[in-house]
C-alpha cells in the first residue's frame, strides 16, 4: 500500500467522521465544523488518488481542490452569518424542531466557563 493510498483512505475516514458529527451534534457551529471536516476529506481523496499514478503529477485535481477550498470558505461564512442571525432572532444556535435530548447536548459547555474564556480573549 503506497502512502498516497493511505492518504486517500484518511480522506474517506474524515468524510465519514464529519458526516457522523454533522448528524449527531445539535449546535450549528459544530455542524459547520463537521461540514468543513467532510470537505477536507473529499479534497484529500481527490488529490491523493491523483498522486497514486505517479508518471507526472496531475494539476487538474489540484486546481479543483483550490476551487473547492474557496467555495468552502464562502459557504462557511454564509452559514456563520445565518447562525448569528438565527441566534439573534430565536435565542438558540440550533435548528428549529431540535428534539430536547439533542438540545441537552448544548448544556455541557457551561455558559460562565465559555463566557469568561471569551472575555479573556478579547481583553
Amino acid at each position: 500500500m503506497s502512502s498516497d493510498l493511505f492518504y486517500a483512505l484518511t480522506g474517506a475516514s474524515l468524510f465519514t467522521l464529519g458526516l457522523y458529527a454533522l448528524i449527531k451534534h445539535a449546535h450549528i457551529l459544530r455542524k459547520i465544523l463537521a461540514i468543513n471536516v467532510m470537505g477536507s476529506g473529499v479534497f484529500l481523496l481527490l488529490v491523493a488518488l491523483a498522486a497514486g499514478g505517479q508518471q507526472a503529477f496531475d494539476p487538474v485535481p489540484h486546481a479543483m481542490v483550490i476551487t473547492g477550498i474557496v467555495v468552502a470558505i464562502s459557504a462557511t461564512a454564509l452559514a456563520l452569518a445565518l447562525m448569528l442571525r438565527l441566534r439573534e432572532a430565536s435565542g438558540l444556535a440550533v435548528l428549529p424542531d431540535t428534539s430536547p435530548e439533542e438540545l441537552s447536548e448544548q448544556l455541557p459547555e457551561a455558559p460562565s466557563d465559555v463566557a469568561s474564556k471569551n472575555n479573556g480573549k478579547n481583553a
Binding site: 473529499v42 481523496l45 473547492g68 452559514a79
Partner: peptide, 24 residues
C-alpha cells in the same frame, strides 16, 4: 423571520451535505 432563518439554516446544511456527497 425566525421560521425563515431556521429553515434557511437547515437548507444550507442539507445543501452543503448534498454537494459534498456529489463531489466525492
Amino acid at each position: 423571520g425566525v421560521d425563515a432563518l431556521g429553515a434557511a439554516m437547515r437548507y444550507l446544511l442539507v445543501s452543503l451535505l448534498g454537494s459534498l456527497c456529489y463531489l466525492l
